[in-house]
Design a binder for these strands. Structure first.
Length: 506
DNA sequence: CGTTTAATATGTATATATTAAACGGTGCCATACT
């Protein structure tokens, strides 16, 4: 069956969007494919369509439960009933049934963690897998090395199920990250379909201010002035709540905070309200955004900057999915470097902690991993993520085999190898952080500068490009009833101009 | 950096002030326990 026929009959589209067809054609001929498609380009069609041409099931590894559930709902919408999200939302009974009847599902959505669940993995190995998809594949690079190491074990899973064709999809990746994805998945003979990550309808502006107080004041001004809806990003849960609270006190409606420390239900509610335009502003940490396909987000303001350029691009990329003009504004002060620097350094365990772990493992006899973990969190101060990172490294080195410590491997050699890995990961993350920091102080076109980081050049420079090329901010002001924009008469404009001129890079 | 939490000092009771140290973000899963 021709791909166009399936597109029309199953999905009801007359033609492909840019990039889709080439990817699908390579996928159905069983090539390994890595697709870099801008947000909103219709990535899911790239695996949904081949499912109806290829024999067998399509397995989709997805980073978030909410994303999986969304995809399932979407497929059900077009009448596909052979769909399951195999995750912790399912009851024990449902899981047992699904494992016994796995072959009856055309689409199987799963988290990288669930791939490690033995009974599921075995069922998968018996299955005819037509295509193995890694959605939001940049997560491999962004999270896989330390935060969610199960991303690194996808490679082993692929081997166990006999190397089915793989399709990795993402919207943001540098050349380095694309390479990382390829290597981490152990892919060979990859067909790369790379499209520009640039978003010409998003104007970019960095404002240099003096300190936190000035930042907050400027934020309040901007939020009242700019056309919503919008997202405010900052780096701590407490601050995201404070900012939301402050905006409410200033009489703004439809503002809520969002972060990973909140109750799951509350998070879902806020996200849904935002999607339905019942909220206009979300003040959040990096927890908010992935899978948020809201077309009309008009601004993204950063009160603190993220630890790397890709994260920044992902965050501003949530604006303007409808193609209309939108703006990203980053508020910067000379005091901002501490938080991202601390985050990079804090993410990995210290050498002293690894030493303590080694001493503890030497002393431990017939201790369960659970007991060891308990001890490590209490006595060594390792959190869950760091503990899992270290046990993963120990497994790689053969120090831990099948949850048992091999004491003969517990030597200076393996100790130093772990320390070396940690050191090089920290250095790598610091380099990315410096790249981000350098970008904040670019004297030339900001778009050109970030595209250079992604190995691209500016193709079409938009009229409102960036603060270095010149932006007319009034184009992004709200127009409704003029109630807010009237506050911004010419003295205010002048004051702002003065501030921007006066606070530029030294 | 700014904020919160833990630790010490005071001075003779049980708190309160001061100072030092720690922390900051991202999610899956399972299992025990409310």
């Amino acid at each position: 069956m021709r791909v166009e026929t399936v597109l029309r009959e199953k999905f009801g589209y007359d033609s492909f969007r840019k990039g889709q067809k080439e990817i699908i054609e390579d996928v159905v001929t069983r090539k390994n494919v890595i697709g870099l498609l801008p947000t909103g380009a219709g990535k899911s069609i790239c695996y949904q369509l081949p499912a109806y041409i290829m024999e067998g099931s399509v397995v989709v590894v997805s980073p978030l439960l909410s994303l999986m559930e969304d995809q399932v709902a979407q497929l059900r919408q077009i009448g596909e009933k052979r769909v399951i999200a195999f995750n912790s939302f399912r009851t024990f009974e449902e899981k047992r049934y699904a494992i016994a009847h796995l072959h009856t599902f055309k689409f199987i959505f799963v988290s990288p963690e669930m791939l490690q669940y033995d009974r599921f993995a075995h069922a998968l190995a018996r299955l005819k897998v037509a295509l193995f998809v890694v959605d939001e594949a940049h997560c491999i690079s962004q999270w896989g090395h330390e935060f969610r190491t199960d991303y690194m074990k996808i490679k082993d899973c692929l081997q166990q199920i006999g190397y089915p064709p793989v399709l990795a999809l993402t919207a943001t990746a540098t050349k380095e990250v694309l390479h990382d994805i390829t290597v981490s998945l152990g892919l060979q003979n990859v067909a790369y379909h790379l499209h520009s990550i640039d978003r010409p309808n998003i104007a970019i502006k960095v404002e240099h201010l003096r300190g936190m107080e000035e930042k907050k004041e400027r934020l309040y001004e901007l939020v009242q002035q700019l056309q919503g809806p919008g997202i405010i990003y900052c780096s701590s849960r407490v601050l995201s709540e404070q900012l939301a609270e402050a905006l409410k006190e200033k009489g703004m409606d439809g503002v809520e905070a969002y972060h990973g420390g909140m109750e799951h239900e509350k998070r879902m509610l806020i996200q849904q309200q935002f999607m339905k335009d019942q909220l206009s502003i979300i003040s959040s940490t990096s927890a908010f955004g992935m899978g948020v396909n809201k077309p009309n987000i008009r601004f993204v303001i950063h009160v603190q900057y993220p630890t790397n350029m890709e994260a920044y691009l992902q965050e501003i990329g949530r604006a303007g999915r409808d193609g209309k003009n939108s703006i990203a504004i980053l508020l910067s002060t000379p005091l901002d470097d501490e938080v991202p620097l601390a985050m990079v350094k804090e993410e990995l365990p210290t050498k002293a902690q690894v030493r303590q772990l080694y001493t503890m493992l030497m002393k431990a006899n017939d201790t369960t991993m659970e007991a060891l973990e308990m001890y490590c969190t209490r006595m060594i101060g390792l959190d869950e993520a760091k503990w899992r990172f270290l046990t993963y490294q120990l497994e790689l080195l053969g120090v831990i085999v099948d949850s048992a410590v091999q004491k003969n491997k517990l030597n200076e050699d393996t100790f130093h190898r772990i320390c070396t890995i940690i050191e090089s990961r920290v250095q790598h993350k610091l380099r990315n952080l410096y790249g981000m920091k350098e970008w904040l102080h670019t004297e030339t076109c900001r778009r050109e500068a970030y595209l250079r980081i992604f190995g691209e050049t500016v193709e079409n420079r938009p009229v409102n490009c960036c603060d270095r090329c010149g932006i007319n901010l009034t184009a992004y002001e709200r127009t409704d009833e003029g109630k807010v924009s009237s506050l911004f008469s010419w003295p205010e404009e002048l004051r702002q101009l003065f501030r921007i001129e006066g606070m530029g890079d030294s």
